[in-house]
Amino acid sequence: MILYDFDYERPGTLQEAMSLLRNSGVDARLLAGGTDLLPNMRVQNLKPALLISLGAIAPMPPQAGEDGSIRIDALSRLADLENSDFIRREIPLLAESAHAVGGNQIRQSATLGGNLCQETRCLHLNQEHDYQFAAPCYKRGGDCCYPYPGNKPGSCWSVYMSDTAPALIALGAEVEILGEEGTRSVPAERLFSGNALTPLLIARSEMIRSLIVPAAPAGFGWGYHKSTLRGGLEFAMANMAVTLRLEDDGETCAAARIVVGAVSEGPLRASSAERKLVGKALTAELLSEAADDASDEINPLPHHGFTRNYLRENIRVYLRRTLTAALERASGGII
């Protein structure tokens, strides 16, 4: 139940939707799957005066470009991506990450764009504020921080928990953003500000239109893992996506991306661990060292009952396993 009234529009085209978003003159939000927006409105973390539904606009099916890249409509439902034979074959990492989100009903409603645009989370935020944590915190436009009372205004350590974002970053996807001036395109990792108050570098008058995933090169391998206590339904304690590319010799690492999410204000790349791999023959020891480096490099925020030390350990172990899986895939061991 949402206990306040708002207006609702259901435009037939994207152009109308964008025009409403720009010209409504009130706090307006786009409504896609609603699985993140509506629960946030229920607890009044967000209180838009107008919802602009994208429900009348059907997503385009994934399309392969001439360069082998694949364009995915941001309005695609996560369930449709995880269940698409085409996506499972061409971008299995994306399918796997979509498969890891929430529960089945969430994936049936939620869209890929919406998953990227989700709000950050913190135990103090994820609830009604009637008598607990009633005074708004920084994130809710107030002037306190419950978990870190010493935090200064502008400083919020809530966590960005999209399961698909690390996958898209690891894949080197481009994000096509529709705005007043037409479309602009940014690499997926440039979508994130690192500031939990405004985690996405997208203006309120813009929307994510599509994701463009480059063709998988020869010698490509991937790995994905979402750590949870229960194996499903809940948000991640940490999630991680890695991609590797091997030289033609089948041993030497030509490129590596290691991305860890759900432990910070945005997804994090473990750049120094990536550098450690590039140009070297990939051995179990080297992957293990890289995982150690990445775990040291990434400074996880304690969140949702998990301590920083434990998150580090969890990331260390699962990155090693994820990198190992990626190497096996890259060298044709598993597909």
Binding site: T35, N104, Q108, S109
Partner: peptide
């Protein structure tokens, strides 16, 4: 045909 959560789905949708 899709299983959805009616508690976070707007009726107008």
């Amino acid at each position: 045909g899709r299983p959805v959560l009616s508690c976070i789905t707007l009726a107008v949708e």
